[in-house]
Amino acid sequence: MGKIIAFILLNLCMVCQSAGQENDEEIPRSMNEGTLLGFGTSNIKDTYLSPFNYNGWGARILNERMKTISAGKGRYSRQQIINVDITSTRNPAENVNDFGTFIDYSLSYHYRIPFGSSIKLLAGLSTHLMGGFIYNTRNGNNPLSAKVDIDLGISMIILYGLKVKDHPLTLRYQTELPFGGLFFSPPYGISYYEMFNEGNTSDVIAFNSFHNKFAVKNYLTVDIPIRHFTLRLGYLNSLYYSETNDINTHMISHSFMIGWVKEFIVLGGKRSNNKSRVNSSYY
């Protein structure tokens, strides 16, 4: 009798497990992708180039992708953000320009905590890679200040779905705060000639954390469905402060973002052969 009960329980478990898998298959995990353009103000100070604040404008293009991952039964999601930022700023006397170009990529994994049906809190870790430079149009032998950072940080998102006159909106607040990593940190008075022509690259990489760097991004968006499209409007505030080897840098930007969002299911690889789930024009 015991053997029979054990056999039934085992089979029940297997059925439940397979049913769960089928359930996973039936509810495919979709990808939320947004591409936004941003315009706003930029304030840059890099004492390797000048002791003064340079103010001007900045433009950026940002692509973000978010998807729940298979591990943890949908409790985890992955987010990737690629951002390209260009800035043009002028010194206080308005007779010199700094041009900046930066590209940064972040990969975050969040644990998802729902609060009711309309609010989700996502909290997790992120890795962030940033590279770029500031170019000063007047400085002869020190015209460039390069920036390369790789960080680990905390990332947090609050998603809030609401309706305004039966119109569904989704609000999102996101913040990213790096807490440690490595960055390019040239010694106080070293020239790029000495570093890159003569090869003196010792001591140009330093550990960074809150003692010498503070960076945070605040990102606020609202998704507005309009017919077959979803419009995303937002505000992105990026703050970056560093102080190493008596070289102070700050980069502050405020960007107003506009773009579109699409939610789609990735069916690449073997999944694309499952013709019962998709009416493909190709496969």
Partner: peptide, 10 residues
């Protein structure tokens, strides 16, 4: 090896 900087009046 020379560097360049600036004054508050530009």
């Amino acid at each position: 090896f020379p560097f360049t900087s600036e004054l508050p009046n530009g």
